[in-house]
Every structure is written in C-alpha cells, then in structure tokens.
Simulated scan of single mutants.
Amino acid sequence: MKIALQETICDVLKLRFGKVSKGISSVIQKIHDSDTLKTLHQKAIFCESLKAFQAELKNVMAK
C-alpha cells in the first residue's frame, strides 16, 4: 500500500503541475508512514501550486 500511495502522490503532482523533480519524488519515496502519505496525497490534490506542496512536504519531513 505504501508504494502505491507514493506513486499516486507523484502521479497527482505530475497531472496537476507537469514534471515533478527527482528531489520531490525521492523524498516521497523515503516516507513509509501511511498516515503521512495519506496527508500528502490530500495536499497534492488541494495545494495551489507545486511550490505550496513543497512547503507542505518540508513541514512533514521536519516532524
């Protein structure tokens, strides 16, 4: 399930914002907590921009 969530987050980002950097994909692939991945999936859907998602990702990684 974790790998599927990681891939889904990247897919959503690609669909919404175009190309996603390897850096963002790499960070997402390092996350293994299902709740965190679910939260990031929601953020990927609702964030206004890729930059806003990156800020959310940074916040999640800082916890």
Score class of each variant (00 low, 15 high):
14 K>R: 15
47 C>G: 09
4 A>P: 09
30 K>L: 08
52 A>C: 04
4 A>V: 13
20 V>G: 10
34 S>T: 04
56 E>P: 02
44 A>I: 00
62 A>W: 01
61 M>S: 09
26 S>Q: 04
41 H>D: 00
47 C>M: 12
41 H>G: 03
41 H>M: 09
16 R>T: 02
21 S>F: 05
42 Q>S: 10
26 S>N: 08
5 L>N: 10
52 A>Q: 07
32 H>K: 13
6 Q>L: 04
55 A>V: 10
54 Q>M: 11
40 L>Y: 00
39 T>D: 02
21 S>H: 11
41 H>W: 09
33 D>W: 00
42 Q>A: 08
35 D>F: 06
9 I>Q: 07
58 K>A: 07
44 A>E: 05
21 S>C: 11
31 I>P: 04
49 S>W: 02
39 T>E: 03
47 C>A: 14
51 K>P: 02
35 D>C: 07
32 H>C: 07
4 A>R: 15
59 N>R: 12
26 S>I: 00
47 C>S: 15
47 C>L: 06
19 K>S: 14
9 I>S: 03
26 S>E: 03
23 G>F: 01
27 V>K: 15
54 Q>V: 12
51 K>H: 08
4 A>H: 15
24 I>Q: 03
48 E>S: 14
43 K>N: 07
7 E>I: 03
58 K>E: 13
12 V>E: 14
47 C>H: 04
6 Q>R: 15
53 F>G: 08
24 I>Y: 01
47 C>E: 13
23 G>R: 12
5 L>Q: 13
54 Q>F: 03
46 F>Q: 05
3 I>R: 15
44 A>M: 05
18 G>V: 02
24 I>W: 01
6 Q>T: 06
46 F>H: 09
2 K>H: 08
47 C>W: 01
58 K>P: 02
7 E>A: 14
1 M>H: 13
31 I>Q: 09
46 F>K: 07
51 K>G: 04
37 L>T: 01
12 V>P: 12
42 Q>L: 07
51 K>I: 05
7 E>G: 06
33 D>A: 08
61 M>A: 07
47 C>F: 02
49 S>M: 04
48 E>L: 10
54 Q>N: 13
43 K>I: 00
15 L>G: 14
38 K>T: 00
52 A>L: 05
49 S>Y: 01
33 D>H: 05
10 C>T: 11
3 I>E: 11
48 E>A: 12
